[in-house]
Design a binder for these strands. Structure first.
Lengths: 156, 156
DNA sequence: GCAATCCGGACCTGTCTGGTCCTGTTTGCA
DNA sequence: TGCAAACAGGACCAGACAGGTCCGGATTGC
């Protein structure tokens, strides 16, 4: 499924909201949680990670909050994915970290995922967060909470 | 981390070995397990999935076994990934399956991962299993079992 | 001094993957 | 015709990991 972690998705949402902020672009974690509809601890967690990677800037104190360090257009998607999920690579048996593959001794594919990973990195490198954030339209949803429950139930 | 399941990795290994087979290209699951160094039940599991998707052909009976349905060069990587891991998509809140995203009502990114997924699919579509299987060289490993244990231990 | 906020952890829990096993069913051969 | 070899299709279990929560401490403005 090529699963990306949910946190990465959240990060994009949070960054998008952050760019829309007034007051010099500063927003608190609770404020962002309210605007995104995500749980406050989760938003806080995402922001902490982003701050460590230099994507946002945290300011402590009574009038503190988070602020973007640069416009989303200058923020490649790869940087956010790397910040949250770590290096962009398809499997564990990759990038010279020899020994992680169970069938290493007889594996004819060993080291051969590299071109695949490169292809993916290239594909993603041209996309910025702004490309994702500035969506033209959001599909409207009649009954958010109710519909969500229904789909969750139907999913399994 | 963009993690791909290990089974997909195994599938590529198994397919590569299968192409090298003599005897009309037919190999049994135990035989493939021996040649790949993977556990027999695991190999069997992978082969069953691949057979369901039409990538290999299973033949029952005393002289049965598995055989490729076509050359690896004609087998795109995306097909194997899709067979093992399901549709190629970066997150759960993707491809019109509305309702899976927690912050759907306020999510400004909703539906916007599609171009990202398209980019990845395009990047992968040009790669065949043969490109992965025909590796130029395998990094030799001095003491397979012992070294593997050591690395596993050091990893955590 | 107090309140609001970020910071850096630890911690728990549910889910999912990897891996195993078991019971049919099919096929070839003696 | 019986037997053995092999696939088919499940169920099942244990471990790892991600999502999510919470807490104590540090910092800043009023």
């Amino acid at each position: 499924m090529l699963r990306l972690s949910k946190l990465t998705d959240y990060a994009v949402v949070v960054l998008a909201r952050l760019e829309d902020a007034e007051d010099g672009g500063v927003l608190t974690a609770p404020g962002l949680a309210a605007r995104t509809g995500l749980a406050e601890p989760t938003v806080s967690k995402v922001l902490k990670i982003l701050a460590q990677r230099g994507l946002v800037e945290g300011r402590r104190g009574a009038t503190g909050g988070y602020r973007l360090t640069r416009p989303l257009a200058d923020m490649p998607l790869t940087e956010v994915i790397t910040a949250i999920d770590g290096p962009i690579a398809l499997t564990a048996c990759v990038d010279n970290s020899s020994g992680l593959c169970d069938a290493e001794a007889t594996c004819p594919v060993r080291g051969r995922w590299d071109p695949v990973n490169d292809a993916i990195r290239r594909a993603l490198s041209g996309i910025s967060i702004a490309d994702l954030a500035h969506a033209p339209a959001v599909v409207p949803h009649p009954e958010p909470a109710a519909a969500r429950q229904a789909v969750y139930a139907a999913a399994e």
